[in-house]
């Protein structure tokens, strides 16, 4: 996201060259001599590519969501309306179908639950790990690598791996549960546990990332702050609570944005875990619903509408972050 935006802004900032008083003819740089024009061979190709394939595709998707495009054939752009969004939030029978369509509330709820649960647990666990690893322990690098390693795995590998872990007869998780006296539990297909199981596996994969971000933040705090707080009489808990945590705000925000976006993209994980985009209603998220509507039911326009909802959610998460970064001059 960062790259195309910065390109656009750079274009905009060039408009600062234009003088509000209009200047005089003699002062004006000839068009071809302007820096923005002369550097065009460098910025123009990526700019056009990004404009077409990212923003063009988004725009096209938005337009598509306003049509009634289903099945085979070509979309009809003459009759645009918001019917798909109405259907998405209230259900009912749309004009392009004979059957009634489920609203997206269920998958929207699951998406938000997964996003919040996963992100919060990831951050908390990452922070705890970072504080532990920061205690000048032995084999620090080894621990860091061990915790970070899961992140290098693809979603497919993590999903298949946890499928084994959760297995009702041979899975390690179930062996542990059994040994604690709770008997083997069906996890992956259990409607009550599905979403939690997915979130847990994702936390396992990404808490190492949160740890690294927090560790960098902790290392940036001068030792003298810890010492000053101790001399000031703060207990360890109060020290972290009042002196350290507030200084980790930037780290928290960066990790939060990345993790939330990962949670929104958890489609591939669910796809691998449930060998398709039918995880069942209790683990259905917007991404699986969207793909199912589009590719299983050929409700292209309706799928597009769900995609737009997902896009707006991502925008709401990323935009404040980018804006705050921009205001701080980091971009």
């Amino acid at each position: 996201m960062r790259n195309p935006l910065s390109i656009i802004r750079r274009r905009w900032s060039d408009s600062d060259d234009v003088r509000t008083d209009g200047g005089t003819a003699a002062e004006r740089t000839p068009f071809l001599q302007r820096e923005s024009v002369r550097s065009a061979p460098f910025w123009l190709p990526p700019f056009l590519l990004v404009a077409l394939f990212v923003y063009g595709a988004i725009l096209w998707n938005i337009v598509l969501s306003l049509t009634d495009f289903t099945g085979l054939g070509e979309p009809d752009y003459t009759n645009l309306d918001f019917e798909n969004y109405v259907v998405a939030f209230t259900g009912g029978t749309p004009s392009w179908s004979d059957l009634s369509v489920e609203p997206i509330w269920n998958s929207l709820g699951n998406t938000v639950a997964l996003m919040v649960g996963f992100t919060v647990f990831c951050l908390v666990l990452g922070l705890l790990l970072a504080i532990l690893v920061d205690q000048e322990i032995r084999f620090e690098n080894t621990f860091r690598t061990v915790y970070l390693l899961p992140m290098s795995l693809s979603f497919v590998v993590t999903a298949k791996f946890w499928l084994y872990m959760y297995n009702v007869e041979t899975g390690l998780v179930n062996i542990v549960i059994t040994s604690l006296g709770f008997g083997p539990v069906e996890i992956v297909q259990n409607p009550d546990l599905k979403l939690a199981a997915v979130a847990f596996a994702l936390v396992w994969q990404f808490s190492g990332y949160a740890m690294i971000v927090y560790l960098a933040g902790l290392r940036a705090i001068p030792t003298s702050h810890f010492e000053a707080a101790r001399v000031d009489g703060a207990s360890t808990y109060r020290l972290y609570r009042r002196v350290v945590l507030p200084q980790l705000r930037t780290a928290t925000v960066s990790a939060l944005v990345v993790l939330t976006v990962f949670a929104l993209k958890a489609f591939d994980f669910l796809f691998s875990m449930y060998s398709g985009y039918q995880p069942g209603p209790s683990a259905d998220i917007l991404a699986t619903r969207m793909v199912r509507e589009a590719y299983a039911n050929s409700n292209w326009a309706y799928g597009s509408a769900i995609a737009v909802v997902l896009f707006v959610m991502a925008l709401f998460i990323v935009a404040p972050y980018i804006y705050s970064q921009y205001r701080r001059g980091a971009l």
Binding site: S224, E227, A228, V231, R249
Partner: peptide, 13 residues
């Protein structure tokens, strides 16, 4: 005791 540090160690937030 109270200590004054070389880097002042003021809490920036």
């Amino acid at each position: 005791i109270a200590m004054v540090f070389q880097s002042y160690a003021l809490y920036p937030h």
